[in-house]
Design a protein around this nucleic acid. Structure first.
Lengths: 171, 171
DNA sequence: GAAGATTGAGAGTTCAATCTTC
DNA sequence: GAAGATTGAACTCTCAATCTTC
């Protein structure tokens, strides 16, 4: 494309009398397109490892816990995905031997997903690949990266992704 | 969640010796989560109109062209989606009478999607709903919105979403 | 009755293969 | 042979319904 499609859409919005919302529309659309680009890069990096981003995130999450295991429900909360998606992802990871389902000792309704030795080794290699590949250069300098993270944290907090430690007054 | 999952992941990254890439990882993850939030809000707003965000974008794109019609291939380029997805979306929109397939006059390999009168009316109403709903308040003030758009434009340009009018030297 | 997990159906995406037209 | 569009298979996500356990 020889032009920025987001800027083009914004211009159309403003010309059609929707100026007040044009900036927010452009912001939302920018996030959508950036996500597509990032996801494509991440999935391409992860493909040789037989992982998708969702499965990598699950593995990485488990690898950071003290015991290496987590109830499926908690995984869904953390990763912001539906319970059915967690079941599916754990099915695949278990079939590959990267994760094992375990019973909860006290509450037998709960199923735990526990990362295995091969799972730990794979997630370490995949992380290295991501850091050297998809995460290596996203076209921003250090200050811009921090600004982006901070702005999106404010968006996520405002939209209920997590509870802010101290409520921010925006009145 | 009582804490920011992105900040938590970043902390883990840094503790495990992957500090150089931790900021970029956090930026990518932030974009992913913000996109999920935005998409859920947009789709919820669009649901009463029988539209998804992908179909709304297609309709809006057509409504902004001079003739109200575009080749399917060009639609895929602009919307950053696979040709098969365009075929699917146009199928649905055509079944709803919002779009009509038309033959290209000169090149008979090309299929045009043309927006209909009902399509124009629906996209106008859906746009109003989005501007009043999903785009109304994303938790940022005007300056932050502009910064977000500018930073993501740089990311998208660097990653090939579009060709910059004047190449930016980042060496 | 409520919570946690699973299952099956429906929608959407991507990929490879196919078909028509240039 | 190449470009544009379509088709069918495989996968993922979401939703509603179900099942077990609290």
């Amino acid at each position: 494309l020889p032009f920025d499609p987001v800027a083009e859409a914004r211009r159309h919005w403003e010309e059609h009398g929707w100026a007040p919302a044009a900036a927010n529309m452009a912001a939302v659309t920018s996030v959508m397109r950036a996500q597509q680009i990032f996801l494509a890069r991440v999935d391409a990096t992860l493909k040789p490892f037989g992982l998708t981003f969702a499965r990598f995130e699950l593995l990485a999450l488990l690898s950071f816990t003290r015991t290496g295991a987590l109830p499926l429900g908690k995984i869904g909360d953390r990763l912001q995905v539906h319970a059915a998606s967690v079941t599916n992802a754990v099915d695949r990871l278990e079939a590959s031997g990267l994760v094992a389902r375990t019973a909860h000792l006290e509450d037998r309704r709960i199923t735990l997903a526990a990362i295995t030795g091969p799972g730990r080794r794979l997630v370490a290699r995949a992380t290295q690949a991501l850091n050297a590949g998809a995460f290596a250069d996203i076209g921003l300098d250090g200050d811009q990266v921090e600004r982006l993270i901070a702005i999106l944290a404010q968006v996520r907090a405002a939209c209920g992704d997590f509870a802010q430690p101290e409520a921010q007054d925006r009145s």
